[in-house]
Design a protein around this nucleic acid. Structure first.
Length: 268
DNA sequence: AAGCCGACCAACCGCAGTTTT
DNA sequence: GAAAACTGCGGTTGGTCGGCT
């Protein structure tokens, strides 16, 4: 039953890679392409396990890696993506060409966390540090019906007169068509977020579902026409308010338009 | 100059989901 | 269908370096 082991752990090197090992790996992948990590070490003459080879290639040897310092724009993008996705480093990395999940994860832990703390923002929740932890209720669901930990997600809050209306953001994956139950069920808190491809003629129009317009998660991240596009992204409505906080204009996660008005969290 | 400490980051570990036998 | 390996991901560790005392 099953397959044979990927490598003899007793005969593999560990620790830092040498120049020679790098060269061997690069040369092999140039010739044979990526993949087959199980057989790669032996075929390439490396005393490493396939897992280690894969990591080395993906994080440091790939020719399309950018390396070097992160720009301010990249900083802000990472923050916004993290507020939406939480610690989904691979997804975040997918939106930053030339950056790897490991690199972004390290950068987050060493730079951005501190940066946010200095701004008075909790890096985990993206809310002001002195704000009570219960108010916002953003839910992003990927492939499970279990709501994602609230603390790892962002919220866009609006204050309308005396009543606080919480704008929640909910993603629906392909398999999931029912938004996660929000707090304050008496309020209409179906979600509204930008429609990134609304004005793009080459993209299929979002379909409507009972007054809401749906786009897939891929579209919401600016991946229109990608293979992941399924156009099931739910756009709901925020309570009854049409006022101050309601934004229009569709760009990637509201970077320009402020649909996800991250900067509103930087106050004070 | 030596020692300490914190920042940085490459690499490892363990887990979960997927694939193969 | 079950078992076992594979793959990919996120969390964590440990080595290195630079600044400070």
């Amino acid at each position: 039953m099953g397959r044979s082991p990927c490598c003899e752990k007793a005969h593999t090197n560990k620790g830092a890679w040498t120049k020679e090992e790098d060269d061997r790996l690069i040369a092999y992948i140039r010739t044979h392409g990526e993949g087959c990590w199980r057989s790669l070490p032996q075929a390439a003459g490396l005393l490493r396990c396939g897992k280690s080879c894969r990591l080395r290639w993906i994080n440091y040897l790939r020719p399309d890696l950018k390396r070097g310092n992160f720009t301010e724009d990249e900083d802000e993008l990472i923050i916004k993506l993290h507020s939406l996705l939480g610690n989904k480093w691979s997804l975040i990395a997918g939106r930053l060409p030339g950056r790897t999940d490991n690199e972004i994860k390290n950068y987050w832990n060493t730079h951005i966390r501190r940066k946010l703390l200095n701004r008075g923002i909790d890096p985990a929740s993206h809310r002001p540090l002195n704000e009570p932890a219960q108010e916002a209720s953003t839910t992003i669901s990927f492939s499970t019906t279990t709501p994602v930990k609230e603390e790892s997600l962002s919220s866009v809050k609006e204050e309308s007169n005396k009543d606080k209306i919480i704008c929640t953001t909910a993603f629906l994956c392909k398999e999931e068509r029912t938004p996660v139950q929000e707090r304050c069920p008496d309020l209409n808190l179906e979600l509204r977020i930008s429609l990134p491809c609304q004005n793009q003629p080459d993209h299929p129009q979002p379909f409507k579902t009972g007054g809401t317009t749906s786009l897939c998660f891929a579209c919401s991240l600016g991946l229109q026409n990608s293979k992941d596009c399924s156009c099931s992204f739910i756009v709901g409505t925020i309570g009854s308010s049409s006022g101050a906080g309601t934004k229009t204009g569709y760009d990637f996660i509201g970077m320009k338009s402020g649909v996800l008005d991250y900067r509103s969290l930087e106050m004070k």
